[in-house]
Each structure stands twice: as C-alpha cells, then as structure tokens.
C-alpha cells in the first residue's frame, strides 16, 4: 500500500519536472517559460519530497520534508517574481502572440516608479504603511507629536 503511494508520488513528481523542462525548452518567451518551470518544478520537488516522507514514515524525516516543502513553496514564487520582473524591465522581448501588455508604458526605468493607472480615478493614493523605498524614519511622523487636548475636556 505504502509502496504504491510512494511510487505514485515519485512518478507524478518526475513527470511534472520533465514537463517543466520540456516547457522551458519549447515555450517561446521568458514569462511563459517561467510559468512552466517555476510552478511545475516546485510542485514536482514537493511531490517527490512527500514521497520520501511516506517511504520513511519517520518523525525526523517528516519534519525535514515539511521544512523543505514549506521552503520551496515560499521561495519559488519570490524567485519567479524577481527574475520575471528583472527580465521584463531589462527589455526581454515578449512573444508575438501576446495579446495585451498594460505594464510597458507605466514603468520608468530611471526611477523604478510604476504607475497604477488609477491615480485619476480614485484620488490620492492610499497611505503607505511600510515600504522599502519609503522609509518611515525619513518622513515626517506627526503621530508622535503630542496631541492638543480637545476643548471639550
């Protein structure tokens, strides 16, 4: 029984990875290649690791497997985002079958500023809670000023 589960996990995982590699080989441009590679690759690795957990049936191994799967699921999209964004802004050409591209004219490569396109529609932007570019320490912080006592008491 366990053997069948392990076999199914390994075979599905390996097949997914093979499809990811085939996708990276065949697909026409960078973002579509990343669609195939990152997610199928992450799911494939996770499935093989789950197969390992089933094969050993041991607490220490299972703990490590959970760590690996969590780590992969957390980092794969972040890595995909970083490379996809860098590739897009460096100017990698998109496939000619691309039907729509709303981002290209909203990006300023000098300042790395990205317009949302909603500035006119929704009025002033939302207050930014904490961002890397807008460090709150460097801005005015009037919430730390002592408040005036209101006249009502």
């Amino acid at each position: 029984m366990i053997e069948w589960i392990v076999s199914a996990c390994i075979l599905t995982g390996a097949a997914l990875m093979f499809l990811a590699a085939l996708g990276i080989f065949r697909l026409p441009d960078l973002p579509t290649r990343m669609h195939a590679s990152t997610k199928a690759g992450a799911l494939g690795t996770s499935l093989i690791m789950i197969g390992v957990a089933f094969a050993f049936m041991d607490v220490a191994v299972t703990a490590r497997v959970v760590a690996v799967v969590t780590f992969i699921m957390l980092t794969a999209p972040v890595a995909a985002h970083v490379i996809g964004r860098a590739g897009y802004f460096v100017g990698v050409p998109l496939w000619e079958g691309t039907v729509k591209d709303v981002l290209r004219d909203k990006y300023d490569p000098k300042t790395h500023h990205v317009e949302s396109g909603l500035e006119e529609v929704e009025g002033p932007p939302k207050p930014i809670t904490y961002g890397m570019a807008e460090c709150p320490v460097l801005q005015e912080r009037d919430e730390f000023e002592p408040k005036k006592s209101d006249p009502g008491g």
Binding site: G13, I24, L30, S37, T45, A79, I83, G87, V90, V92
Partner: peptide, 16 residues
Amino acid sequence: PDRVVALELMASIVAG
C-alpha cells in the same frame, strides 16, 4: 534571464 530560469530549474531537478 532565460539562462537563470534554466539554472534554477536544473537546481530543483537535482533536488528531486
């Protein structure tokens, strides 16, 4: 970037 994506996929295949 294409090469970087390929390298990353190779790493996860080796992990598998």
